[in-house]
Amino acid sequence: MGRKTLVAIDGSPQAEAALAYALEEFPESAITAVHVVQVPEGYWTAFSDSTTKVPGYEDAVAHGEELLESVAETVADEGHALETVLKTGKPSRELVDYAIDEAFEQIVIGSHGRHGVDRVMLGSVSETVVRRAPMTVIVVHEE
């Protein structure tokens, strides 16, 4: 069995660059595109017993499914196979947990390249994935 590569997909130009990088650099790898529908944590979840009660959840799932379908079609048109997976939760946690559970050798993720206050205020999925993942993580920086 060949290498397994997980690529984080969020619809951004940075995620597109990460997917293009993975396809170019690892043509023999089994590539899986993963999109995570983020649901609120903390205060909101204290009053909700199901993610389906979170406002906009169904729309976010539908958007994620459309995004993954579009990415898969684009990649197929270029002659590549691509598996897609939709997860729900905190993106950094879901990406790393899925990569561990499914024995991926590497994660390729795009970075928005935020610095200073923006990074502190908005957090960084790619930074958290780099810190938590036990496998190789390749960060593709695209501005």
Rank of each mutant, 00 (worst) to 15 (best):
L86D: 02
V85F: 04
V75A: 02
E83M: 09
L86V: 15
H80L: 00
P91F: 06
V85W: 03
L86M: 09
A81I: 00
T74C: 03
S92D: 14
T88P: 05
L82G: 08
V75D: 02
V71L: 00
T84E: 11
T74N: 14
E73K: 11
H63Q: 13
E78I: 01
T88K: 05
A60P: 04
E78T: 03
E66D: 14
T88C: 00
H63S: 06
A72W: 01
S70E: 14
V85L: 07
G89Y: 05
V61W: 06
K90D: 12
A76G: 10
H63N: 11
G89M: 02
L82P: 11
P91G: 05
T74W: 02
E65L: 09
L68I: 07
V85N: 05
T84Q: 11
P91Q: 05
S92T: 11
E66I: 00
E65I: 10
H80P: 02
E69F: 00
G79V: 10
T84I: 09
K90H: 12
L68P: 08
T88Y: 01
S92Q: 11
L67K: 05
G64R: 14
G64M: 09
A62Q: 15
H63G: 03
H63Y: 15
H80V: 07
V71E: 05
D77Y: 02
S92N: 10
L68D: 06
E83L: 12
D77M: 06
V71Q: 00
E73V: 03
T88W: 02
H63V: 03
A60D: 14
A81L: 04
A62C: 03
L68E: 07
A72T: 03
A72G: 04
E65M: 09
T84K: 12
A72Y: 00
P91W: 04
S92C: 05
V71H: 00
K90P: 06
V75F: 02
K87H: 04
T74V: 01
E73C: 02
E73Y: 03
G89Q: 06
T74D: 14
S92V: 12
K87M: 08
E73I: 02
A60W: 08
L86W: 05
L82M: 07
E83S: 15
A60Q: 13
E83I: 03
E73L: 08
E73Q: 13
E83V: 04
G64K: 10
L68F: 04
E78M: 04
V61R: 14
V61P: 06
E83W: 08
G79E: 13
L86P: 07
G64A: 13
K87A: 08
D77H: 05
A60L: 07
L67S: 08
S70T: 15
G89D: 05
E65S: 03
L67A: 06
